[in-house]
Design a binder for these strands. Structure first.
Length: 761
DNA sequence: GGATCTCATGTTTTT
DNA sequence: CATGAGATCC
């Protein structure tokens, strides 16, 4: 009887999912098919009908915001707080577990901090320095990628298997990087997940506690889990096997972050008795929008077919519009928004989406020019602004004096006369005394008898700062975070430091004050809790209601959201699909899914735009309309069909080839001999914008970083192996793998960045 | 030791 | 273009 409330208004498939018999359950949910509803009702069903205590339920969501909303909805259904329910992102849940079990962690105490990507970069740089490696040859962010990929695959430095030179370097950097993090009592995002899994692997007894506790596990956005997350779920479900996974492989857009939608397949294999439920009714979009989306996604190979349908027959046609350049494109968006407002829509009903954050700028300028309200998701994230990060660094250092990265960041910010020399000397002295740099500072300030190499100005600067730091640490446990922050800002003359008389300086101080407000709001939190919250929020989490403001956001950030009106901008080859994904089928498929996600965010209307010319890195180049446009049936769009437009645009590009009045780029524009799919144009005619694809054969010099330097047939010389002929050369990751037939030693496979191969003319 | 200038470089996406 | 790192100047 109670059940009736819970399933009223749900369709059959949804009801089946909500009331499914406990066990492994896989819900494949199309966009707009009410999966959040299913999840919340399922949890309510577990609590209300099956009498499961909330304490025994774990629900994993993709963002904190989703968690909050779900909690709210469950509260509404149950008419009360589901007390004890664990709900949050993988990262926040893991952070909580690690914090609670910190006494079992070998290298960490409970005050460990969470390093964001900027901090990570610092650590990688330090690791490279420690290993005497050139950060030009081994770009830190690439190293970081390698490390992150490994962690997402649950590969520790110890088991990391190097297969070539680059990966051997990565392995060493990874090892050192990890050691540095531990020395800093810091974890990066990936560590939160990996260390939880490792903790459970090493301590069966601890795992058992959690396994027994979490009788029911529910996971949202299951297609975007990585191996480590999947393993964690397997671990936690190890006793009760009640795992309710909701996902849609067509909306998997985080492969680059280690996500693997094949986890859905893996789930089926590892839980052969899993019940599978398809949610195919879309409650969001009109028929036209859904048809367009389906036509787009249909082109991806190897999909699990779903028959999506909607009861919202018909609808407005999809507007596809070519603009001359990105400014005109932005203007097109403005004009459309103004018309829609006249029709009765509010600016808040609309979202403008784009592939890359850089595209938001022109749009923002247009909004400002026209005077329409807007809000940008992401872009320059608040917590990543320098002045805010500096402020956070102070708090982090106070919380965890072992955090050398934060200390490094603010040691001389605001400037206080501690330059590179003093910094080095401090580090050396600290290491010599087996102290963390911050501890060394405090020793310097408090221990008059300390033996040290500093004198005069440097000594004064260092010890002054040391005694301030010492005082803050004492203050830490006595006053709320906001007050502590006030003291720090006051004593460091932070405002003076930011205020350079410009408006920008004002704004920076404003940001710091805004951060201070955040701290004041969390008055019930201690410093550690506050820092954790700050580290784990995402920009979308703070997307609060701004009634009339139009939302600007990336396609990635749009996942899980919906808007009556959606603008999809920059539908050009090289942008969507992005140039970096053009040559790999799986990556191209992911770009298509991204487009699919964008379209399916819309309830009523979709506007798609692309520019004929677009400015990249300062100079303007001709763009070709996205190959995805042609996938939308002509009958669903207004005006020219997309395919025709692509043709037309292509012609114009061709004429541009001979039209000297337009020919701004000369030598920099290359003519590709082989232009992409060739589905819409004869490949030989297409000029390639310079930025899209570096010509792999541009020059065979060592400076060419991206493309292969060697070609089959080239004669080469190797210091040890002598002369030979290149048989094959291919790029593997960022390294070039060259197969050479040597006269003396036969076939060898060499790594170009490692082996010194000279080309013989 | 600190501020300012020049030059190269490019992260696509984010918990 | 816009940002960051390194070089140079004060």
């Amino acid at each position: 009887m109670i059940t009736m409330d819970l399933i009223a208004g749900l369709n059959t498939a949804q009801q089946t999912a909500v009331t499914a018999k406990p066990g492994p359950i896989l819900v494949l949910a199309g966009p707009g098919s009410g999966k959040t509803r299913v999840l919340t009702h399922r949890i309510a069903y577990l609590i209300q009908d099956l009498r499961i205590r909330p304490w025994n339920i774990l629900a994993v969501t993709f963002t904190n915001k989703a968690a909050r909303e779900m909690r709210q909805r469950i509260e509404n259904i149950l008419d009360g707080q589901p007390r004890g329910l664990t709900m949050g992102t993988f990262h926040s849940i893991c952070a909580r577990i690690l914090r609670r079990e910190s006494q079992h962690l070998t290298y960490y105490d409970k005050d460990f901090v969470i390093f964001d990507s900027a901090d990570q970069l610092q650590v990688v740089k330090q690791a490279l320095k420690d290993l005497n490696l050139d950060d030009k040859k081994f770009p830190p962010y690439k190293m970081l990628n390698g490390i992150s990929n490994a962690k997402n695959e649950l590969i520790t430095p110890e088991i990391y298997a190097a297969t070539n030179y680059i990966s051997e370097v990565t392995r060493r950097v990874y090892t050192q990087y990890q050691a540095l993090l531990q020395a800093n009592n810091a974890m990066d995002f990936d560590d939160l997940l990996m260390n939880t899994v490792l903790l459970f692997q090493e301590h069966a007894d601890i795992l058992l506690q959690y396994q027994e506790r979490y009788e029911h596990i529910l996971v949202d956005e299951f297609q975007d889990t990585n191996t480590t997350q999947y393993t964690l779920l397997r671990q936690l479900a190890g006793v009760h096997h009640n795992i309710f996974a909701v996902g849609d492989s067509d909306q998997s857009i985080y492969k680059w972050r280690g996500a693997d939608f094949r986890n859905i397949q893996r789930f089926r294999e590892q839980y052969p008795d899993a019940e599978q439920i398809l949610l195919e009714q879309n409650y969001r979009s009109t028929q036209i929008i859904l048809d367009a989306a389906k036509a787009v996604i249909k082109r991806n190979p190897q999909r699990v077919h779903k028959e999506l349908f909607t009861l919202r027959q018909g609808g407005s046609l999809i507007t596809v519009r070519e603009a001359y350049n990105e400014r005109e494109e932005a203007q097109f968006v403005m004009d459309s928004i103004e018309n829609l407002i006249l029709e009765g829509y509010s600016g808040g009903d609309m979202a403008v989406m784009y592939r890359t954050n850089a595209q938001s700028r022109v749009l923002e300028e247009a909004f400002l020019r026209v005077g329409l309200p807007y809000r940008v998701v992401g872009a320059t994230e608040f917590y990543k602004r320098r002045e805010v990060k500096d402020t956070i660094a102070y708090l982090r250092l106070i919380h965890n004096p072992a955090d050398a990265v934060s200390l490094g960041r603010i040691l001389n910010v605001p400037t206080r006369g501690i330059g590179a020399k003093s910094r080095q000397a401090l580090q050396a002295w600290a290491a010599y005394n087996n102290l963390q740099p911050a501890e060394a500072l405090i020793r310097l300030a408090t221990d008059a008898d300390a033996q040290h190499p500093f004198k005069n100005r440097a000594l004064k600067a260092l010890s002054t700062f040391g005694s301030m730091l010492n005082a803050w640490i004492v203050l830490r446990d006595q006053v709320p975070v906001a007050e502590l922050l006030d003291v720090v800002l006051e004593q460091t003359h932070f405002r003076m430091h930011l205020d350079d008389g410009t408006e920008e300086g004002e704004e920076r101080w404003g940001n710091v004050m805004e951060f201070r407000n955040v701290a004041a709001e969390g008055a019930d939190m201690n410093l550690g809790e506050f820092l954790e919250q700050v580290a784990l929020v995402s920009e979308t989490d703070n997307l609060d209601e701004a009634p009339n403001a139009t939302t600007l956001l990336t396609l990635h950030a749009a996942k899980g959201l919906e808007f009556p009106i959606v603008f999809l901008t920059g539908l050009e080859d090289g942008l969507l699909p992005h140039s970096r994904s053009l040559d790999e089928a799986e990556e191209l498929a992911e770009e298509r899914r991204l487009f699919y996600v964008g379209i399916t965010r819309a309830k009523d209307r979709v506007y798609i735009s692309h520019a004929f010319r677009r400015t990249f890195y300062g100079d303007s180049a001709v763009s070709v309309p996205s190959r995805f446009l042609g996938d939308i049936p002509e009958a669903l769009t207004d005006g020219d069909s997309s395919a025709v437009k692509r043709e037309k645009s292509k012609k114009r590009v061709s004429s541009w080839q001979t039209d000297t009045t337009w020919s701004k780029p000369q030598s920099s524009t290359r003519w590709s001999a082989d232009g992409g799919s060739g589905r819409f144009q004869s490949p030989s005619q297409r000029p390639r914008p310079r930025h899209l694809e570096p010509d792999p054969f541009a020059q065979g010099t060592a400076e060419t970083k991206r493309g292969p330097q060697y070609r089959a047939g080239m004669r080469v010389n190797h210091g040890r192996f002598g002369d030979g002929v290149v048989i094959e050369s291919k790029m593997t990751g960022d390294d070039e793998e060259v197969t050479v037939a040597f006269a003396d030693v036969g076939l060898k496979r060499l790594s170009a960045s490692f082996a010194k191969l000279d080309i013989i003319q």
